[in-house]
């Protein structure tokens, strides 16, 4: 169409303003001298200084990263298995229940997952004496459970897309079942496994509600720390912390974007190569 979609472009501009003005405002106010977080009182970096000297924040960050690393890794292993099972096994006993179990956590409200996990851990402690104290372990277990289904979704859809004949081809060429798994299946779905891991890592790092229910004394993750501060209102040091987190993520996404566009360009070059090979 040769008509320029003026209305659509206006809406895009409005939408992106809506997306980014709050974040930009937060970044600007993180350099606010004033203790009153919403009133401008001059430029200062003192909130960043106080942030870096805040042991509590550093400890929470380390705990969050530890939980996210472990839970994302276990969730990726379990989630990949489930994804493979659902994509490749046509029939097995309890398939209906199984596919229900990998979708339900996706739509289950976090509050309900939270109270159910907490009641489970309390009752379990009552029955068998474990877990004696809630904290790192219980939070990690809960995170694995609700993030593995995201991995499953990603892996399953990649498995379904992949040409199933390549597994047969490997078998036809003399590979035993376990060799097919390592030679063909896993390498082909590897990108999906990686993005599943990244998703699980982010979800774990970001979670407030389920963590709040399943944690115990002494195990405060970064989102929980922010949550407890934010409930009391807007404070300049949270602005500073938020700015740092947004910058780290933003940088990561931009980097990923650059890598992706480079991969795009390589794909274009490959297509050209294939086209030239035709002649």
């Amino acid at each position: 169409m040769n008509r320029r979609p003026v209305f659509l472009i206006t809406m895009l501009c409005f939408g992106f303003a809506f997306f980014y003005i709050p974040i930009l405002s937060m970044i600007v106010y993180s350099f606010n001298e004033s203790r009153l977080a919403t009133v401008w009182g001059g430029f200062s970096t003192k909130w960043y200084v106080s942030l870096f000297s805040n042991r509590q924040v550093i400890a929470a960050l380390i705990l969050s990263l530890k939980i996210a690393l472990i839970s994302a890794t276990v969730a990726t292993i379990l989630g990949t298995m489930a994804g493979i099972a659902l994509a490749r096994f046509r029939k097995f006993r309890g398939r209906v229940l199984f596919s229900g179990l990998v979708t339900a956590p996706l739509i289950m409200p976090e509050v309900i997952t939270g109270i159910s996990s907490l009641m489970f851990f309390i009752l379990l402690a009552d029955w068998i004496g474990w877990p004696g104290q809630r904290g790192f372990t219980t939070v990690t277990l809960a995170h694995i459970t609700f993030s593995m289904v995201f991995v499953t979704t990603v892996v399953q859809s990649r498995m379904v897309q992949a040409d199933q004949a390549i597994e047969e081809a490997a078998m036809d060429l003399g590979s035993r079942p376990w060799q097919v798994l390592f030679d063909v299946t896993l390498p082909v779905i590897f990108p999906a496994i990686m993005s599943g891991w990244l998703l699980a890592f982010t979800i774990s790092l970001d979670d407030v509600v389920i963590t709040a229910f399943t944690t115990g004394p002494g195990a405060t993750t970064l989102p929980l720390l922010i949550w407890s501060k934010v409930k009391l209102g807007v404070t300049p040091d949270v602005n500073a912390l938020a700015t740092l987190m947004v910058l780290v993520v933003g940088l990561g996404v931009v980097l990923a974007g650059i890598l992706m566009s480079r991969a795009d360009r390589r794909r274009d070059a490959d297509a050209r190569l294939a086209y030239q090979a035709n002649e």
């Binding site: 040409d163 004949a165 390549i166 047969e168 081809a169 490997a170 078998m171 036809d172 060429l173 003399g174 590979s175 035993r176 030679d183 063909v184 390498p187 082909v188």
Partner: peptide
């Protein structure tokens, strides 16, 4: 089993290993 048969197949989709 397929991996022990002296029979090989050229698949319709070719099934080349993309990696």
């Amino acid at each position: 089993p397929p991996w022990l048969r002296p029979v090989h197949m050229m698949f319709q989709s070719y099934a080349l290993f993309p990696h």
